[in-house]
Design a protein around this nucleic acid. Sequence first.
DNA 1: TAGATTGTTAATCGATTAACAATC
DNA 2: TAGATTGTTAATCGATTAACAATC
Lengths: 210, 210
Amino acid sequence: MNKNISKSVIKRLPRYYRFLCELEEQGCDRVSSGKLSEIMRTTASQVRQDLNHFGGFGHQGYGYSVPRLKDEIINILGLNNTHDAVLIGAGHIGTGIAAHMKFENMGFRIAGIFDSNDKIIGDTINSIPISDIKTINDFTVGRDIKAAFLCIPKDAAPEVVKNLYNLGIRSFWNFTHYDIHADYPDAIVENVHLSDMLMTLCYSMNEQED
Amino acid sequence: MNKNISKSVIKRLPRYYRFLCELEEQGCDRVSSGKLSEIMRTTASQVRQDLNHFGGFGHQGYGYSVPRLKDEIINILGLNNTHDAVLIGAGHIGTGIAAHMKFENMGFRIAGIFDSNDKIIGDTINSIPISDIKTINDFTVGRDIKAAFLCIPKDAAPEVVKNLYNLGIRSFWNFTHYDIHADYPDAIVENVHLSDMLMTLCYSMNEQED
DNA sequence: TAGATTGTTAATCGATTAACAATC
DNA sequence: TAGATTGTTAATCGATTAACAATC
């Protein structure tokens, strides 16, 4: 697959994908870079530049085929290549994610859910049982768990990550503020810092008031 | 307050803030741009450049005072200026946010929680009652609600946002995929696209496998 | 064919990094 | 004073935008 594509391009691909899905739902089967740029709120130039990193999907004088482009992006991101993941922490956030997100469309499958709270161990979310975090080492034996989604308190994170890392898990979707990269530079980490976003919103609101 | 600061600088400020809080907890009262750059995984140059946008907080030969710098960032972001917000949608994600986030440290206060589900209306989260979404217009009368946190399904979003906009709310923390800016260009929007992040993680994992 | 729109190169813009004089 | 480290200007790097020939 293509290498050396910049992070800024990659981060735009899921947005292209979302908008292409919407266009497809609307029964639209072709789209120009100009039209796409309006939806994405960028320039037609950037759209063409972005898409051309991965090959010439367009046709001069016509534009891009919506279903074709959608499929290409699925391929680039590898969304049809399913990775098994464990969800750690079945509090509100963890439960919300497990219950509502369509992982099968995003290259993942939740193989197991773990928590340390006796009161919820044994419950199920989307028919996946919540298991005792203590049993995770046995659980991973013979399975190819590739990623972990961390929906636990910050204090619990270092120990949990240490264990997951020792089990061979190298990819983390991290809702905590524990800095995984600092301790495991080779890990693939996607951080969700909700409070950072809220502070940025706060800044924008104050800025406008001036 | 300072204007024309680029978005990339602003987005780093919450991270500086977090790390400064940690340094302070560790009893560390001074820090150099070099040390901060290690924690932030960037260059000392960028740290000095960033901080200097807002004034000379450092001392040559000494570095920066941790508590002073922390306070300056609080001021720049305006975290001590509390905005009243409503949370719309008390499902798992909404409940998780309302229950666990320390809004008072981030410039916000949840003035009310709203949902359309009869089964949870009347329940409380952190002693804030969940009210019927139908009552929100009356609720906002005489209150200065500045922001809304949208934790609802995408389909419900357009109608809800339309109503909130008509009530004078212009700032949105948006967990849905409804594109608020497309319909309200003057709104201040912070989007949380969890699925986009997951797809980016998927890409990184596939990329490494090659 | 004429009009539309891509692919791609070149130009611009902005953000990051380097360098160093100022100074605590 | 000598060493450390900032503030700030200049250089570099990368990302975005413009332009236009190619071509459907």
